[in-house]
C-alpha cells in the first residue's frame, strides 16, 4: 500500500528522478535537434498532459469522460480563429482557450453531473459530436470541411518545433503539479470519496455536484490548451482532425495502462504507449497505418482490461507487497488489541 500511496500523492517529487528527468527533457532539443524525436516526444508530452487531466475526473472522481476530444477540438478552433481574425498568437491565447474549455466544461457538468451515474458519459460523448457538427456546419466562420489554415510561425523550418516542444512540456509539468496538489488537498480527498461511495461522500458533507463540476472544469483545461497548441503546430485544423474520437480513447487507455487515479499512472502510460504506437505507424505501410493503429489500440485495451485491470503501477506495487515482511492479515494482528481494549 505504501508505495502506491506515495506514488499516488506525487511523493517522488521529493526524490531526484522526476527533476532529473525534467532537466534531461529540457536539454533534448539542444543535443538532439532531429525533428523525428522532438516530434515524438512532443506528442508524448501532449498525450501525457491530457491524460493526467483526464485522470483528475476519470481517475480521482471515477467519472469517465468520452468528451475530452471535444474540448481539444474546440480549443483548436478557438485558437485558430483568434489567430486568423485577431492576429493573437497561439502561445499567448492557449491558456485562455483552455479557460474557455473549462467554462464550457463547467456548463456541461452543470447539466450532466448533478445526478449520479452514466448520464455524464453519454452527455460528454454527445458533446463531441455536437461540437464537431457545429464546426462542420458553421462554414462562414470555420471553413466547414475544408478547415482553417493558420499562418506559419516565423521561424526556420528546423527550429519550428522547438517552441511546441517546450510548450507541451510545460503543459505536462503543470498537469503533474496540479494533479499532485489536488491529490494532497481536501478537494482531492473529496473526489476520491465520490469515486468510492458517492452517497456516503454526500452524507459526510461533501458537496458532490460542485466537486465534480470543478474537477471536470480543471480536467478539460488541459485538453483545450493542448488543442490550441496542436492547431498551430499543424498550421491547420479541420473537423475530422480536431475531433478524432481516438484521441479520447488514447487518453483513457494511457490512464488505465499506467494506473488510474495515481498521479504518475497516466504519465507512465503515455510515455510507453505513444512511442509504441508511433513506431507501429512508422513500421506499417502508410496506406493501412490508420487501421492497423486502431486495431492495435483495441487489442491493447482488451489486454489491459483482462490482464492488467489495475494498471502498471498498482500491479507492480501489489506484486511487491505479495512478498512482504509481515504477511499476516491485518485482522489477526488487530483483534488482540481490540479485545484487550
Amino acid at each position: 500500500m505504501r508505495l502506491e500511496r506515495r506514488l499516488g500523492q506525487g511523493w517522488p517529487l521529493r526524490r531526484g528522478w522526476p527533476w532529473a528527468g525534467l532537466v534531461l527533457l529540457l536539454l533534448v532539443p539542444l543535443v538532439l535537434p532531429e525533428g523525428f524525436y522532438l516530434d515524438l516526444l512532443m506528442f508524448t508530452f501532449m498525450y501525457a498532459a491530457m491524460s493526467v487531466g483526464w485522470d483528475i475526473m476519470g481517475g480521482y472522481a471515477g467519472y469517465v469522460s468520452l468528451g475530452h476530444v471535444g474540448f481539444f477540438g474546440l480549443g483548436s478552433y478557438a485558437a485558430a480563429l483568434l489567430l486568423v481574425h485577431l492576429g493573437l498568437p497561439v502561445f499567448i491565447t492557449a491558456p485562455l482557450v483552455g479557460l474557455m474549455a473549462s467554462l464550457l466544461g463547467a456548463g456541461l457538468g452543470f447539466i450532466s453531473l448533478r445526478t449520479r451515474g452514466p448520464a455524464f458519459v453519454i452527455v460528454t460523448l454527445t458533446f463531441t459530436y455536437v461540437a464537431q457538427l457545429l464546426m462542420l456546419d458553421l462554414k462562414s466562420v470555420t471553413g466547414g470541411s475544408q478547415g482553417l489554415f493558420l499562418p506559419l510561425l516565423d521561424l526556420p523550418a528546423n527550429l519550428v518545433i522547438v517552441p511546441f516542444y517546450y510548450g507541451m512540456l510545460a503543459l505536462l509539468v503543470i498537469a503533474i503539479l496540479v494533479s499532485i496538489a489536488i491529490r494532497r488537498s481536501k478537494f482531492g480527498l473529496g473526489l476520491i470519496a465520490i469515486r468510492e461511495d458517492e452517497g456516503k461522500a454526500e452524507a459526510s458533507g461533501v458537496n458532490t455536484s460542485l466537486y465534480k463540476i470543478l474537477a471536470f472544469a480543471i480536467s478539460v483545461w488541459f485538453a483545450g490548451t493542448a488543442g490550441a497548441l496542436h492547431a498551430q503546430y499543424l498550421n491547420y485544423v479541420d473537423p475530422d482532425l480536431a475531433f478524432e474520437l481516438i484521441i479520447t480513447l488514447n487518453l483513457i487507455i494511457m490512464s488505465l495502462f499506467g494506473s488510474r487515479g495515481i498521479v504518475w499512472g497516466p504519465v507512465l502510460g503515455a510515455f510507453i504507449l505513444y512511442p509504441l504506437s508511433a513506431y507501429l505507424v512508422f513500421l506499417v505501410p502508410s496506406r493501412v497505418a490508420g487501421q492497423v493503429h486502431l486495431a492495435a489500440l483495441g487489442i491493447v485495451l482488451v489486454l489491459v482490461v483482462m490482464f492488467l485491470p489495475d494498471g502498471l503501477i498498482r500491479s507492480y506495487q501489489g506484486w511487491r507487497t505479495k512478498r512482504p515482511k509481515d504477511a499476516r492479515p491485518l485482522e489477526a494482528r488487530a483483534s488482540i488489541v481490540e479485545t484487550t481494549g
Partner: peptide, 15 residues
Amino acid sequence: VPVRQLGLRTLFTAG
C-alpha cells in the same frame, strides 16, 4: 473527508 470544507482557499490546502 467529513471535515467542513468551504471556500476555494481551504479546498486546495493540504488535506
